[in-house]
Design a protein around this nucleic acid. Structure first.
Lengths: 235, 235
DNA sequence: TTGCTCCTCACGTCACGTGAGGTGGC
DNA sequence: TTGCTCCTCACGTCACGTGAGGTGGC
């Protein structure tokens, strides 16, 4: 005897709504109806639904299921295509997992850009927001140098982080002088960071402005004075 | 100077529509507007969008991004949860890939149920549709036995597949006799298949009916006569 | 009559994409 | 004036899920 929609769905291991959706999508022929309008499904419908479910479980989108020749029992190309897509997805997810692992291992905050997790806890909040912007605005070479710079931590960095808002000119001058030497040394070694203008990605005008805004937003006035003074000292 | 929606989107590496969606979803504060109604974004908006994008790229759904404490810079639990979900997804996809590999290796048709790819090319179309239904209706024990039965192929199976529609009673009797012996032997060894009634999954009434319908659909009248005769011979 | 099933709309989901129609800036 | 940008709806996507409102069967 014929099956109702619910029975068909149960037999096929799916839902009533899915079966109706396959009708709407033109994947499954409508069966004949009983006098009261109830649908009456037969084995051919069950087989079709099982075939659809199989392909769906193998990750095939319904649209591709629809266009697949029913005659073609062994569509090698379609299967390889599916496999390639799945392989790519897995690769992406593996990448995400290794990033998550880095974040956990270094106990680094989540709002550090990709690849900077190793810098971990040492990074101040101001530096974090700056890094986020930088990571969007610099090219790969400059970012690589930025990563290695982040690994060098100097006592003067702590002084800079802790600089009082009402620091005197003398304090600022002293700190800037101590930091300028290292900044100059870094700049000689880090050629990309030393010539940032040539290592911007995306729209140059936007990029330059964004870095400026980010710096102004990240640091307090006293710190900005130090940065300006360092700029003057290192020419 | 403030940024337009497009500029913000470009800086954050996303689209204008995504930014607007984050407003709608309550993830991103609306900035102040210029006299003409244009939005004017600042660094704080850029940082927020970058943070959202980072989490999204790590696979976090926006709803979870929304409920995450902005103060919590290192949400270990949330990260582990994400990782677990991704790990489960990868595992599922690996499973699908190994199935696809089996299908390709054995050049088996796609409308064979999971785990039967090894039976490959040898399976007739009738058997394929029967297997599809069986795989939904039998329990794990019975399915395992069914798999090993499928690996045994006897010359009489070819005769059965090729049986003429107008086969004489004598031909049918002869074939049934030849096949009955092996069927009886299989039934002694395969205890689950020998007692199918005890190894149905899902709703028993539906399951039994479905197997009957599937058999009636899969085989031609002459073949059905052979099957009935085998049933009588093996008691 | 009660509880269960069937039917057909219609709308919701998720994270946006795609026009539609109108305005502002240079 | 032209071409480009901005704005706000409104609807589309994908594979269904969730009611809503009405009917049939026992």
């Amino acid at each position: 005897m014929p099956w109702s929609t619910r029975q068909l769905a149960d037999l096929a291991g799916t839902t009533v709504k899915a079966v109706r959706y396959y009708h709407d999508a033109g994947l499954l022929d409508e069966p004949e109806r009983a006098a009261n309008g109830y649908k009456r499904y037969g084995v051919e419908h069950l087989l079709r639904v099982l075939q659809i479910r199989r392909l769906v479980e193998l990750g095939m989108p319904l649209e591709r299921v629809a266009t697949m020749e029913r005659a073609d029992r062994h569509p090698v190309a379609a299967i390889r295509e599916l496999d390639d897509e799945i392989a790519a997805t897995i690769e992406r997810l593996e990448g995400v997992r290794s990033e998550l692992a880095l974040i956990l291992r270094h106990r680094s905050p989540i709002d550090l850009p990709e690849g900077f997790a190793a810098a971990g806890e040492r990074v101040s909040e101001a530096d974090r927001s700056l890094l986020m912007v930088m990571s969007r605005v610099l090219d790969a070479d400059a970012l690589a140098e930025l990563r290695s710079v982040m690994d060098r931590r100097d006592p003067s960095d702590d002084e800079f982080d802790a600089l009082a808002d009402d620091a005197s000119d003398a304090e600022i001058e002293a700190l800037a002088t101590r930091m300028a030497e290292r900044v100059a040394a870094d700049a000689r070694e880090m050629t990309a960071l030393g010539d940032l203008g040539a290592h911007l990605s995306g729209r140059r005008d936007l990029a330059i402005g964004a870095v400026g805004e980010a710096i102004a937003h990240a640091y307090r006035p006293a710190q900005l004075r130090v940065l300006i003074r360092i700029g003057e000292l290192t020419g």
